[in-house]
Amino acid sequence: MHAEPVDLNAWRTLALDFERQLNAVLVGMPRTVRLMTIAVFARGHVLLEGDVGVGKTTLLKAVARGIGGAYQRIEGTVDLMPGDLVYHTYVGDDGRPRVEPGPLIAQGSELSVFFFNEINRARPQVHALLLRLMAERTVSAFNREYHLPWMQVFADRNRVEREETFELPSAARDRFLMEISVEAPDARDQLRSLMFDSRFHDADALIAQVAPATLDHTRLNDVAAAIQDTVRSSDVLDGYGVDLWLATRRPAQYGVRLSDVDIDGFIQAGASPRGVAMLVRAARVQAWLDGRDRLVPEDLHDVFFEAIAHRLCLNPVYESQRPLYARPFISEVLRTIASP
């Protein structure tokens, strides 16, 4: 760990430059890029959601290049076992069996971005390993403890195919700072660029445009702590945050209404204390990126859906149609709760 003081102004310039470079690579995704930047500086793990081929891997590789450090990726499959993350075995040229470190520990503590593709295809045993990994940033292998202090987990859920998938338990979902939606742009000229501009056809060349290690990944934990210490809240905003939290747990009591929904039975469990703490953590980074040292309601709004929606446990009647109800519900909470 570094003991030298953090110059937050200089780091903010770096963060905005990092954001600018990502936006140059990823067409029409300014909000996604902003949320990823927030996640990087809040030191939170991220669930990614999006269709195939919309740029999730490109985004993650670009982020990893900008952060510096090592990048690893693993594909979730139904036969994936926890051991596959920490070691792999093979027969060497000399015909003797070999055991080598797996993707999690191959780079040691240098690992900064770990991408778990289609996490819901992996078995619950793998999810359990991931729980500890995300919470403690440590993993046990070869009779020792590996510390991964700068690692961030980015995971993708396959929402299209349901066969042979294992839905993430709520405890695992709750450990993700945000669930970010990655979508292809809507604007016609951007679609045209993606289609006809050859610059976007070669992902590796595109990612190479991002300056490597724009952010020093070994300083990010210190920067994140400094941001959380610097950006302050107020009594009124604290009250507003608590109201928002309670409205996700007891929406009827707070006057939240959804058409065609029995709001009394809509929510089985609202946001957890860890969830709202992460919400404020992300909101503080948003305020810092906007050049403020005080939180305002809009900071909470900017990250509320991504930080809270995936933590809500809906009634089974509505759970199967979560994409249909989650966003309107969050919007209604924000529309209903007043501040001041």
Binding site: V296, P297, E298, H301, L334, R335, T336, I337, A338, S339, P340
Partner: peptide
């Protein structure tokens, strides 16, 4: 003032 704006809009009005 905020309550009046909220009452007129039918939802919470923020700066944004």
């Amino acid at each position: 003032l905020h309550h009046a704006c909220n009452g007129t809009a039918g939802c919470t009005v923020f700066s944004e």
